[in-house]
């Protein structure tokens, strides 16, 4: 049974070691943000970080990932705060969203080694296919993410998931905390309110 670290959790996946990492993630670990588009490395929808490098998860087996650190789109940040996530939303460089996780991971890997990539470097690094045609926005999105990484800019385009209704109500005058119905996820909201 292959043992590896996925999104900082050590896991043992009960599947044949010859299984592509993609299916280990999707069907073994239920991490469905990593998408299947072709199975042969053409589309890049299954791109994940393996020891920090962007790899096609369909081209590497679970066995080959033994002992390695895998980061999927779910683990890139806890709250959509990675600059690449924020920049993709801010530039609306997303349409159907199927290729997006792979592009975000690919961009994050590029920026991790070069926070100020040229247009040519971005074109060379992001080989992901997108049929909706977001390409015209991708260069700007990656460069904007780079500016955020270099602390030249701040973006808050994609809010964190699971905002407590009470926090939302404090920010947005149109929202109130209802008197009758307490929020369903009470423990979550209490925990969030206690944060500094």
């Amino acid at each position: 049974m292959p043992r590896l670290t996925v999104n900082d959790h050590p896991v043992e996946i009960a599947m044949d070691p010859q299984t592509p990492l993609l299916w280990g993630l999707r069907d073994g670990a239920n991490l469905t943000g990593t998408k299947y588009g072709c199975g042969v490395g053409d589309c890049g929808a299954c791109t994940v970080l393996v020891d920090g490098a962007a790899l096609r998860a369909c081209l590497v087996t679970l066995g080959e990932c033994e002992g390695r650190f895998v980061t999927t789109i779910e683990g890139l940040s806890a709250d959509r705060s990675h600059p690449m996530q924020q920049a993709m939303v801010a530039e609306q460089a997303i349409q159907c969203g199927f290729c997006t996780p792979g592009i975000v991971i690919g961009g994050a890997a590029l920026l991790a080694r070069n926070a100020n990539p040229s247009e040519a470097e971005i074109r060379e690094a992001l080989t992901n296919l997108c049929r909706c045609g977001v390409y015209p926005r991708l260069i700007a999105a990656v460069q904007r993410a780079g500016r955020v990484m270099r602390r030249e800019e701040i973006i808050s385009a994609a809010p964190a998931p699971g905002i407590a209704p009470s926090d939302a109500a404090r920010k947005v005058p149109a929202l109130t905390l209802p008197e009758k119905a307490p929020p369903l996820n009470k423990t979550t909201s209490e925990r969030q309110e206690q944060r500094p």
């Binding site: 239920n30 469905t32 943000g33 789109i73 779910e74 940040s77 997303i94 969203g97 998931p161």
Partner: peptide
């Protein structure tokens, strides 16, 4: 801003093949 984009950058936007 588009309502569907935030969940498309963290893998939580689900397609039919993502149902478990």
């Amino acid at each position: 801003p588009r309502l569907d984009l935030p969940s498309k950058v963290d893998g939580s936007w689900t397609f039919a093949g993502d149902v478990r």
